[in-house]
Design a protein around this nucleic acid. Sequence first.
DNA 1: CGTCATGTTAAGGA
DNA 2: TTCCTTAACATGAC
Length: 286
Amino acid sequence: MPELPEVELLKEHLQEKLIGWRIHRTNVIKLRIVRPESPEKLARCVNDSEILGIQRKGKYLLILLSHEKKTCTLFIHLGMTGRLYALTASEQDKSPHCKVAIEWECDQGKLVFQDPRTLGRVSMDPLSVDRLGPDAWNSGALSKTTLRERLGKSRSSIKTLLMDQHRVAGLGNIYVNESLFRAGIHPEQSGCALSEVQWQRLFDGIRGALDEAFTHGRSCSLDWQGSHQSDGFFYFGSQSNNRSKKEERFRIYDRAHQPCFVCQASIEKMEIAGRSTYYCPRCQSL
DNA sequence: CGTCATGTTAAGGA
DNA sequence: TTCCTTAACATGAC
């Protein structure tokens, strides 16, 4: 369920749980997840290695491994429906054992990757991550100026540009909608038409949308035992126990025909780049 | 039954 | 070259 905030919180969660775990076996159940190399090669590189660290870039999770005195990195993308969680030995009977795509058996427990739609990916190939633009949350990487430099020369719509991971990494459909609403910018506005004031507002809008998602996400338990089983390590979903939280979380996303929280105008929905786009016609006029 | 879905990539056309 | 749309992937929620 991942855009940048969900992956960031997952990273923090796994950092506390998974560092030092030793992988001894890799079970690839859904072969498609491992690309472009073969599942066999993945298993050779990962088995008998120790987890040294966990990082995030854009929507990718990076697992740093030590394997026979060398280091290597596992690149994990959760796609649309991927979930990753670690179960200690005493927690393993709580695992649902269904929809599992990959399992890593470790001395200390089990690392499980579930992905019903198999849009996610596990890879040793750094190419996709190398091609990402600056991370949207890393303030050393993204500033008002980098935003203008990377998006301001194109005539494409600002929404399309923000969705492009090669320009800025980490924002997806939800947080692009949220960021543009906060910035008061119409999603169809062309990148090269934004004013200096609008770049600043967009930068602040992105920071604000992500920051609020972190705050909200940290208030939700990611603990397996305390959560609904089918949504254990993520808080975004359509579970009934999440619905009220979802309404609190999003100011514009999925609120078509509802009143804008700022001006009460009816929120409109349109399609841009094949994705649902929500905006307030009054707060985000062209 | 039909519609929509947090993502990425390739293909084809203007 | 740039930029757009569409389809594909495979499944679940409603």
